[in-house]
Structures are given as C-alpha cells and as structure tokens.
C-alpha cells in the first residue's frame, strides 16, 4: 500500500498510474486527470510552465496521501504523478488515481487528494500568453 508518487519532466503515463493502483481487493478505481486548458479567466493561454521544489513536493504529497489513508482506512492504493517543465495545450499536468473497495470512497478520496495537493504541494505554474507570462495565484 506504499503510494506511487512522482514528479516528472516526461509526459504523464495515465495508463501506468491506473495499473499501479490495480488490486484484487478494490472494486473501484477513480482517477482525476488535470490537463492544460486554452484559456484562463477569459485570457487565451498558449502553454504552461510548471516548476517544482521536488523534495518538498514529494514530502508534502506523502503527507496528503497519509491524511487520505487516515480519513478513509479502506483506501487500498494511491498513485499521483505530476508533470513539470513546459506543457502544451491538452497535455496531462497531473493524474491522481485511487483504489478502494467501493465507489463512494474512491470519489471522495480522489477529490481530497487533488484539492489538498493544490493547497500544499510546492509546484508553481506560469501561464504563457500571446503577450507575456504570469505566475498563477502569486498576487491577491
């Protein structure tokens, strides 16, 4: 039940993440796949640049997953893969996959992990527009 956590500069392999959580004890596999969207607040986005403080990001991700195991003791397997570097429109930025015995907990645990990841994991996103770039959420 050791979670599969990684931050990579290579394209995210969604099928591998799903395979990593596969277990005979689970009747539900739930996945969230975050992809690069072509606009942000109505402003066209050309591509994204993700930067990661890898060692801390993996430490914090480990805490997030540990919290999920506490909240949902029936949680079987977890995989989280986050991309860094330059991503084009449609590229997969993150995949969160969980396996649980039944579906209700799979939705809840998956949502908890992605929501909490966005709050604490040390990854930064710079949006590239036609006329410049901006670090997302940096300013009030």
């Amino acid at each position: 039940m050791t979670p599969h956590l990684s931050i990579t500069d290579q394209p995210v392999d969604v099928a591998s993440a799903l395979a990593a959580v596969q277990t005979d004890a689970a009747g539900a596999v739930n996945a969230f796949i975050g992809t690069v969207r072509n606009q942000s607040g109505g402003r066209p986005v050309r591509r994204l640049h993700y930067e990661s403080y890898d060692s801390m990001a993996l430490t914090q991700l480990g805490h997030v997953v540990a919290q999920a195991y506490e909240k949902w003791p029936m949680l079987q397997e977890v995989a989280v893969v986050h991309r860094k570097g330059t991503l084009e429109l449609g590229d997969v930025a993150v995949v969160v996959a969980v396996a649980t015995p039944h579906r209700a907990e799979s939705f809840a645990a998956c949502q908890f992990i992605i929501d909490t990841l966005k709050q604490v994991v040390t990854i930064w996103k710079r949006e590239e527009y036609e006329d410049g770039t901006e670090w997302v959420a940096a300013h009030p």
Binding site: Y50, S52, I123, K125
Partner: peptide, 24 residues
C-alpha cells in the same frame, strides 16, 4: 516542511521561500 514564524534557523537547514503554490 512548512515552518512557523518562531521556528529557529540553523546553517545546516535547507531553507526555502514558498510563494503561493499552483499545482494541479
């Protein structure tokens, strides 16, 4: 690890500024 304001700093610590994160 995120540190509180009263956390002491040592030369051997790995210290970093963490601006608003935006993963996902």
């Amino acid at each position: 690890e995120y540190a509180t304001h009263d956390h002491p700093l040592r030369t051997t610590d790995e210290i970093a500024l963490i601006p608003p994160v935006a993963g996902g």
